[in-house]
Design a protein around this nucleic acid. Structure first.
Lengths: 226, 226
DNA sequence: GACCGGCAATTGTGATCACACATCATCTGG
DNA sequence: CCAGATGATGTGTGATCACAATTGCCGGTC
């Protein structure tokens, strides 16, 4: 499923290489939980779904495999979205609970008024989506909020680690919202974060981010377990 | 340079795909510091150096780019080994100082007598290489020591993070040993680690590993700075 | 009706060719 | 003798074909 609507994720940027555009499209689809865990995909199917030749898809997929957002089954050597496992989710949670607070702490020191303004706006649209029960809107806004912070840290390696971790968390999201519905969305710590940024307080920012992630991931662990 | 001797890193395994073998070869070469930071490489050159067609090299390289062990220059779109930067090294140090102690702590709990025996042997060959001033032997043994531990943790995600981080640290190694020579190799904490493993003491293992890495990375930071 | 054998379609992988672009050397004109 | 144009070479990228292996379907047999 979902392959036929993939082309909507492909936004044309003439200067970028095809395989980069394909990567972005697949990455966004994965982060948003378009693909189900365990679902098998194929190069040619993706290619035709994106209206490109299999070649750029191969390279994009190879990259996603390296980032553990996709996997090659050792037996079949066939392509698929990694399955859920509680152990895997725990490792993701631990890793995120280290990297992202770290990024928040770095960003807090370098915080500019522009960043804070952006975060406030982002948090507003998030709250609106939340009150409307708009899951997709909430997820998009939440993603934007977090990554505005991470980008502001100007720490490429950590930024990419966070990006990769979200990529791997995506497919879990789908399961969570399938089981929990839109009702009990996590109470986030975004206001505390914005406050810490305004005060350029690294440790408070780190702590707030850690709690934000811990609660979100706890929700996922709980949802996966049952 | 170094490309002509690359084929020695290619060990035949009939069941594995070409691009995997190529990846392994390039990864090992990178971890051992065969390539100089900033050195530019090309698909066709690597391909002929490894006696394969450019095709599998493309996929292997795409993977290495995703792991930030290689990079594509945005201007030229040409391939090269990432340059040194103090900021980059700091991020690597921070990341390693979290992931690898974490792995050590997990592995300590699951430690078996076999693992401890292997580690002792590994440490012996390390000491022998050290006393002979055999840099390459020391690096190989050190790598083996650490990754026997990491593998024993059975935490795929963390293991792969460690692997990727070593991949990125490789090119720095070359610079370090060029500047420092073989004399002042780091006094490691391997004995403390082995002791902690025998006692199944996670926190002591974590601490010992953290110090081992901190000292090693400090050495590198110092070497890069001058 | 259930099981199994065999054929067709689909899979990932590798090789080869074509293309646009960047780089570098050489050559030409001043 | 030097600068700028011009060609040759090398670069990553994409398309297409070939191939072995696996999967899945379909019909036949017990």
């Amino acid at each position: 499923m979902a392959v036929e609507a993939l082309s909507s994720y492909l936004l044309k940027a003439d200067d970028a290489a095809f395989h980069d555009q394909v990567y972005d499209a697949l990455a966004e689809a994965l982060t948003e939980g378009v693909f189900a865990p365990g679902q098998s995909v194929s190069l040619r199917t993706l290619a035709s779904g994106l209206n490109v030749s299999p070649m750029p898809v191969r390279e994009a997929v190879r990259r996603l495999i390296a980032e553990k957002a996709l996997e090659l089954q050792p037996s079949n050597k066939r392509l698929r979205v990694p399955s859920l496992s509680e152990d895997r989710l725990h490792q993701l949670a631990k890793a995120r609970s280290w990297v992202e607070p770290e990024l928040a702490a770095i960003a807090a020191i370098k915080a500019t008024p522009e960043l804070i303004e952006t975060l406030k706006e982002e948090d507003d649209t998030l709250m609106v989506a939340l009150s409307k029960g708009d899951v997709e809107g909430y997820m998009k806004a939440n993603h934007a909020f977090h990554f505005h912070i991470y980008k502001a840290a100007h720490a490429d390696l950590f930024y990419d680690m966070a990006r990769t971790l979200w990529l791997q968390t995506g497919p879990f999201m789908r399961v969570v919202f399938n089981k929990l519905g839109t009702v009990q969305l996590p109470r986030d710590h975004h206001q505390e974060l914005i406050g810490a940024f305004a005060a350029r307080d690294a440790e408070t920012a780190r702590k707030a981010m850690a709690e934000d992630i811990a609660e979100g991931m706890d929700l996922m662990v709980e949802a996966v377990r049952v």
